[in-house]
């Protein structure tokens, strides 16, 4: 069984992002970039399937400029076998990424595609589902458990009310939620080995995709600031303030 796993290069989750002074975009100068945390969980799940003998090959793909090869190498260091970079410039919208990934799916014919449920930059939560629709594949989104039984993929999903389990025909798509697994750290020998693993570069044209733009970013701005309130000295004071000042209890 072949597993395709998608990874995205994003601002590190510890960085507090700010809007540029002119409001044209966010300021990403000199900030630390990392693999999107949900994508890291996706890589871990794929590698575990390989270690369990269920998967035979794990292919990591990323869409972006040359710098995203760094995140593909991270995936290779975590245990993916080879990488593919779809070379693009500037920001690419989720629908277009889904079209590019569909092109990769047609080339690679994976039995399972694992993606993060959302990236922590755009917070869109779209790409996996869009790929599902375009490729005619079923999806187990927001997964907290993935099992393969009798040729079907059983996915337990984190939904608003609790947990839901669905059974999917394969090939299928999984998008990861936080509790699916705890990603490992790449060891130094594996980081060294990852440098020698194959990494192909393809263009959107190679995949027959003509990139389009549907949305224009007009402005970015900071959210309304909440100013810090006061510290109360005691439980009595707190209850008094809530009753008589805020009037919320």
């Amino acid at each position: 069984m072949k597993v395709l796993v998608a990874v995205k290069r994003v601002v590190d989750y510890n960085v507090k992002v700010r809007a540029k002074a002119d409001g044209s975009d966010v300021d990403l100068n000199n900030v630390k970039m990392s693999i999107n945390p949900f994508c890291e969980i996706a890589v871990e799940e794929a590698v575990r399937l390989k270690e369990a003998g269920t998967a035979t090959e794990v292919v990591a793909v990323s869409v972006g400029d040359k710098s995203c090869q760094e995140q593909i190498r991270t995936a290779l260091a975590l245990g993916a076998d080879r990488g593919i970079q779809v070379e693009t410039e500037g920001s690419v919208e989720p629908l277009e990424i889904a079209k590019l990934l569909k092109g990769i799916v047609e080339r690679e014919s994976p039995d399972l595609v694992i993606l993060g449920k959302q990236s922590i930059d755009g917070d869109n939560n779209q790409t996996g589902q869009m790929l599902g629709a375009l490729a005619g594949m079923p999806q187990g989104t927001f997964a907290s458990e993935v099992k393969i039984e009798d040729g079907k993929l059983n996915v337990t999903r984190e939904v608003d009310g609790g947990l839901q389990t669905v059974s999917l025909n394969m090939p299928a798509i999984v998008t990861t939620d936080l509790r699916l697994n705890e990603p490992r750290y790449a060891s130094l020998p594996n980081i060294m080995k990852a440098k020698k693993k194959p990494l192909d570069v393809v263009s959107p044209a190679d995949l027959g995709v003509d990139l389009a733009s549907h949305l224009t970013l007009l402005k970015v701005e900071p959210p309304p600031e909440r100013s810090a309130g006061i510290k109360v000295e005691s439980v009595d004071e707190l209850i008094d303030k809530l009753k008589n000042e805020a009037k919320v209890i």
């Binding site: 601002v11 507090k16 992002v17 700010r18 809007a19 966010v26 922590i120 930059d121 755009g122 917070d123 733009s213 549907h214 949305l215 224009t216 970013l217 007009l218 402005k219 970015v220 701005e221 900071p222 959210p223």
Partner: peptide
């Protein structure tokens, strides 16, 4: 909201 609500984006759809 984008970036966990640290930034609010105004977007126009074509």
């Amino acid at each position: 909201p984008i970036y966990a609500g640290n930034v609010i984006a105004t977007v126009q759809s074509s």
